[in-house]
Structure formats: structure tokens, C-alpha cells
Amino acid sequence: MEFSQVATIAGKEFWDRIRNRWVLAVALVFTVFALSIAYFGSAQQGAVGFRSIEVTIASLVSLVIYLIPLIALVLGFDAIVGERERGSLDLLLSMPITRLELLLGKYLGLAGALTFSTVAGFGLVGLVLSSQLDLNALFHYFGFMFSSVLLGCAFLSLAVMLSVFAADRTRASGLAIAMWFFFVLIFDLLVLGVLVVTAGQWGGEALPYALLFNPADVFRILNIFSMDDVRTLYGLSTVFPPALAQPWLLGLVMAAWIAGPLAIAAWRFRR
């Protein structure tokens, strides 16, 4: 593999998103939402202003779990199928570049743009709040940002995989939306449904492991498990065994969610 080829493709993808202000727009969305949640999250209870990092992160997790998968899927669904449909893929592949290098370059460039906007958006809010946070709170906030990046990269990997398999952009976009619904809205309902219908008699012990099959749930567990104040606010995640809720272990699971779909995409793209 020639990394310079990967870097060339990645650089173009990244700078394309900087130039068309995609990164700026997404960073602004994250900043505005995060600031609003931090300062006005408790307005319904009659209080305004920053209260605690735990509550803020818990609210941000709820936001991010909807928003980042959607943004990542929209960002990546046409990475390959778009080039193919526009007719530029043949020209790219006529260059001294392998399909794997092209795929990795595309992924890394898009992941770079998503990471940059996530870190810039939430990082700015972290800076604003930093005077009111102690080291422990800052550590939690940093962990939230890092896991948000991992969540984005995992869904981006899924999007790129879709992009390789889909016959055209229309189908790719439909599949991306379906994937978002499945992982963000339906998956937990299904698991809960099975649990309720069987009165916990079937699959009860396997349930925590089932959550690992959804990167959105892994992200949720990563962020709420270390915070006793908010753990009880979340249904399914609270049944997760503490022994499995190690950040490094969940980080590895997230890494598998990034590498797995990409590996499948690379296998398919080579054929």
C-alpha cells in the first residue's frame, strides 16, 4: 500500500468539506446545541444556567445519538456510489492507485472532516465551560467528545460500506436512512420488546451483549456508565453488567464497528 495515495484522496475529501463550509456548518450546529443544552437544559424546571457536567453530558448524549449517526450517514453514503454514478470512478481508478487505497483515502478524509467539526463544535463549548469545570469534569467531557468521534467514525464506516454495495445514489440514500432508523430508533425497541414479551425469560442474560451490536448503544454505555447521577435515566443501558462496561473494552468494540464495515466494503470493492 502507498500511503501517499491514501493521503492524496483523503486530503481532497477533507479540503472539499472545509471549502464548501460543511465542517463549519456542522461545528456550528454542535456548538449551538451544546451551549443551549448546557445553559438552558433545565429551563423547564425554572432554572437557567450551567448546572452540572453529568446532566449536561447526559443531555448531549441524547442529542448526539440522533445527530451524529445521521450526519455521518449523510456524509458517507455516496462516497463510492457517487463517484461511480457521476462517471469519475473510472478516471480515478486509471491512476496508479489500488481500490483499497481509494476506499481508505475516501474514508479517512471524510472521517477527518467529521472529527474536526465534532471536536471544534464541542471543544468550543468545553472551552466556554472550562472555568466552571474541575479536572474530573473536564475528563468526562473529553471522554464524551472522544466517544462522539468514535460514534461518527463507526456510522461513517457503515455509510461507506453501503456506498460500495448500493447500485445507485438513490438506493444508497434510502439504505442510509433505513440504517439510521434501525440503529437509532428501532434496535432498542426490539430488544426491549423481546425482553417484555418473554417477561425476561428469554435472552435475559444475552441482552447486555446484544447492546454491543449497536454502536449507538455502545456510545451511550460509554458515556453514562461512569456517572451515577444519570445512569438511572437510561433504560436498557442500565442493565449492562459493570464488568463489561470498561472504557477500553467498549472502545475496542467501537473500533471493531469502524474496522468491520470498512473491511467488508474493501472486500466488496475489490471484486
Binding site: K12, D16, R19, N20, R86, G87, S88, D90, L91, S94
Partner: peptide, 12 residues
């Protein structure tokens, strides 16, 4: 060198 039919380049 390759010039494809209906060459598609990057608009941006």
C-alpha cells in the same frame, strides 16, 4: 494517459 468518454471532473 486516459481521457474517458464524457469526462467528469470535480466541479469544486
Amino acid at each position: 494517459g486516459y481521457l474517458p468518454e464524457n469526462v467528469v471532473l470535480y466541479d469544486n
